[in-house]
Design a binder for these strands. Structure first.
Lengths: 282, 282
DNA sequence: CGGCTACTTGAAGGATTTCAACGTAGGTGG
DNA sequence: CCACCTACGTTGAAATCCTTCAAGTAGCCG
């Protein structure tokens, strides 16, 4: 589980990501390359950002997996998000003095550190890329909201299914899924801290899911999805929040700062002044 | 609980909010006024944004409370965030086609709807304000992460305490706390859907907290905090994530430098009913 | 006075945690 | 090569947190 989780091809993760929402021009790629200029390797389980301490430089993750997490005063840990290739780390460095969460490597990683100032420059010089950054940020927030929904309203079994599906989708998206190998490098401990469960219960939940034929017996080699559709059924997966619907065509013309943003009619008070959709227990 | 939760004075919520992180100039205030130009009233329990449907216009909440929430396919509801005066709603309208969450009024509200295009203009014409928007957005993300930690790793009692403290802090911050009245207009149903608990258990938790002398018997009039320090002890409250540390001095020079703007438009904005019983996993 | 919504309370059951013990693989050093 | 250590995973049993079901109370409105 400790090998580097490299990308399928040697392509730049940022170019790969943003070319999905933007027709990158020569100059855009050049600018993105500046983010990835100072590549550096790190081992597993190393800290990149530490909660309560000042941010260091910002970084892009090129290869490997990291986790973003928070610690309660008594040591309980909550993993907030998985950081996959192409994700930014510590981009708030230029906004906040002190980090409100930690980021650590999960596997050996390759990252590129850059001066946060580069973000400002990008907005100034390549507004189209600036728009892409905005979009990227909004996507991360959507992901966070879905996590909230998962933690609050899904059972352990459902939550695990959802996490696995979501992670697979994101991996496909960022090109981080190995061809003949769909294992995810996450230990049960990490899963527990992500789903807000105890390690023991995660073990039992995984056992059940394995015997249900939904995942592989990937013990100690990472968990592996066997039946994606089955998992999606389990948790009623709805991909809307990943916002990948209309990326190909429409998005390209809208993200660019050159084009006009359009206005749409208000949607207010549906239901004739009634209450919001509320499933009431009898 | 149905009166309008107005602001302490008639000041503009946006001016109030951003003057805490920025020395607003005459022209800044004029620009902010454009966001608040088209004021409109709404009743309690009306929809503003509906998950799965296209966004409407964006809005600023001027008075009242709203909730941001998600629905699972089977109707379970998870409240993601409280929207307080000065908060934006549907600011993603210019990024995403389809809303990934809903927003509804909780109390009667006054809002101002504006064309999302106004955001782009603001970044272009008043970069200092653009920086403030970025900061505002980052704060909301920090809030979301804390919510994740709460849902995943705090008990019902701790989570309730944390939610109450956080909400009081935010209210003080946005000036939405009435002078002689520290009641919060949130029903137990809303609390349950925020903490990811059942209504019944919230009722019991509140009872206990009340008998512990931490909150007032605000039945049917909203819950009221009696012992803020006590609540903070219960949940080990750490305010770091609200990022209010160095707002007074330092922030002003960093956020606002039209000269050396370290941050640049990284826009992004994000801006009733109860959850049915959770189905038993197979 | 219904009828509605919000809240309360008791009892039972289920989900999840804790405690504790055990197993297994990989790495390290003798 | 084995002994040992550590990280990770599994399993059982008991305890706890929380949910569900069900019924009842209280305030508000027409």
């Amino acid at each position: 589980m400790d090998r580097i989780w490299s990308r399928v091809n040697g392509e730049s993760p940022l170019v790969h990501k943003f070319s999905q929402c933007l027709n990158l021009e020569e100059e855009d790629c050049r600018q993105l390359a500046r983010f990835e200029a100072a590549s550096r390797s790190m081992g597993a389980r190393e800290d990149i950002v530490v909660e309560g301490e000042p941010y260091g430089q910002a970084a892009v993750l090129l290869e490997g997996w990291c986790i973003r997490y928070k610690l309660l005063p008594d040591g309980r840990r909550q993993v907030v998000d998985f950081v996959l290739p192409g994700c930014f780390i510590g981009l708030h460095a230029h906004i906040f003095e002190v980090a409100d969460h930690s980021v650590s490597t999960l596997t050996p990683c390759r990252l590129s550190f850059f001066d946060p100032q580069l973000v400002a420059e990008t907005f100034a010089e390549r507004p189209r890329l600036g728009g892409a950054l905005v979009w990227d940020n909004a996507c991360r927030e959507a992901l966070l909201m879905e996590r909230v929904a998962s933690l609050g309203r899904r059972s352990a079994y459902e939550g695990l299914a959802h996490l696995l599906v979501e992670t697979c989708k994101r991996l496909q998206w960022c090109g981080g899924l190995m061809p003949g190998d769909n294992r995810l490098p996450i230990s049960q401990t990490v899963i527990a801290d992500t789903l807000g469960l105890s390690l023991v219960h995660v073990s039992r939940t995984i056992s059940k899911m394995r015997s249900d034929g939904l995942i592989e017996d990937g013990t100690r080699r990472g968990i592996a999805v066997r039946d994606l559709d089955g998992l999606m059924q389990v948790c009623g997966y709805d991909e809307t929040y990943l916002h990948r619907e209309h990326l190909p065509a429409r998005r390209r013309s809208r993200m660019g700062a050159e084009t006009n943003l359009r206005v749409r009619p208000l949607i207010v008070g549906l239901g004739g002044g009634g209450s919001p959709p509320r499933p009431v227990p009898p």
